[in-house]
Design a binder for these strands. Structure first.
Lengths: 96, 96
DNA sequence: GTCGAAATTACCGTTAAAGATAAATTTCCT
DNA sequence: AGGAAATTTATCTTTAACGGTAATTTCGAC
């Protein structure tokens, strides 16, 4: 965690988590209980100050009921163009 | 890293990394040089024995020239098939 | 069967993630 | 403004990621 692009990635991912949490009106405390991750740790992740492990991201994605990949998707490329909106899916949030 | 689903995630992601590396005919040593991550560490990640950090995944994805999200892409389901998500939510039940 | 490249495993040391707790700060509501 | 809730920040401890190195192991070619 030193690189500049890496900081941006962490900030972006954190921002997406925060937005998703906001759309569900969850507090950090509530998300902490859902994920088993402490509220201070979640705060650090959402503000891009911590480099979370893969399983940590997954626990957050699961609690927010979004595919982990959507939290990571970098602006240059979203998930497969061949796969339109997951029909079964996560309606959650009108993310452009 | 204890949960069973988490182990599967790590194994899946590792497998995708290995596959991608194989299609490019790269050795662990070569990928290690490209990423700055040691070959033993890469081996552990590819075999699902290590829980990599987000920036570690990104360095691997960058070196392999694939979007990070493709390495994570779950088989579009992390949610339990038997229990359809209650429309309003995974409510915090007693917690809220 | 031997040789050598590639990969796995096993140490060790450093660094950072994560939980817990408390304190400080910000935000929101009346 | 005042107060409560939410968030951030600070410490401290435990655990694990990561690099380095070396020792195995695996596997294909000869």
């Amino acid at each position: 965690m030193v690189d500049d692009a890496e900081k941006k990635l962490l900030a972006d991912v954190g921002y997406r988590i925060r937005e998703t949490r906001a759309t569900q009106s969850l507090s950090l405390e509530q998300l902490a209980r859902l994920t088993g991750i402490s509220a201070p740790a979640l705060s650090l992740i959402e503000t891009g100050k911590r480099d979370p492990r893969l399983t940590t991201l997954k626990r957050i994605a699961d609690a927010l009921r979004v595919p982990p990949a959507t939290l990571i998707a970098d602006d240059s490329d979203t998930v497969e163009p061949s796969a339109p909106a997951p029909s079964g899916g996560y309606d959650l949030g009108e993310y452009q």
